[in-house]
């Protein structure tokens, strides 16, 4: 096992589209171990994608089981060739990235998603995710498509933001 080097902006490899995994072998499992060790070595990352360490293959790890305030989650997931099939709702949230040090910003993501992927052994799996976990998966799948959260930043004054103020305020009022 080894902690791998994280590619950082403006490394052009972060903008590339990753390839599907076709070989499910011991080498893949060993790489996934290294990827997980790398995720845990950094500053509290809930997810990591293979291209962040320079391997342009569609592999991500997410783990939303250790947030300060518990959120709905499926524990630690290693997802190979993940594909989001349904998006529902939208929500603003703050994101940062191991590949973009010293910066955080607001990004709109779908609130709920349906997705399928393969396990590291090549077995198909399907998941429905919501909230923070759905956000984490969308952030990581973006990496596989050569997108970073800074490509999706929205203004602090975005219209969506202000409408949500009214909605939540309205519900709370007694």
């Amino acid at each position: 096992m080894a902690v791998l080097d994280i590619l950082k902006l403006p490394d052009p490899r972060l903008k590339e589209v990753s390839q599907e995994v076709e070989r499910f072998d011991d080498e893949l499992l060993a790489f996934i171990d290294d990827l997980e060790e790398t995720r845990q070595a950094g500053p509290a990352a809930v997810g990591i994608a293979a291209p962040q360490v320079g391997r342009l293959q569609r592999i991500v790890i997410i783990d939303c089981s250790t947030t300060r305030k518990p959120v709905p989650n499926h524990g630690r997931l290693v997802l190979v060739n993940p594909e989001i099939t349904e998006w529902d709702g939208f929500e603003l949230g703050r994101e940062g990235c191991l590949s973009v040090p010293d910066y955080t910003g607001n990004v709109i993501r779908a609130e709920r998603i349906k997705m399928h992927a393969l396990t590291p052994e090549g077995e198909p799996r399907e998941f429905e995710m919501e909230g923070y976990e759905a956000r984490a998966l969308q952030h990581e799948v973006d990496h596989l498509d050569g997108m970073l959260f800074i490509d999706r930043l929205v203004s602090r004054r975005t219209d969506l933001f202000q409408r949500k103020v009214y909605q939540k305020g309205g519900k709370k009022r007694k």
Binding site: P43, G47, R68, G93, E95, G96
Partner: peptide, 13 residues
């Protein structure tokens, strides 16, 4: 005055 507080859990990924 309608005030709403929410925690920001910054997602690092």
């Amino acid at each position: 005055i309608d005030v709403h507080v929410s925690a920001i859990e910054t997602l690092i990924g």
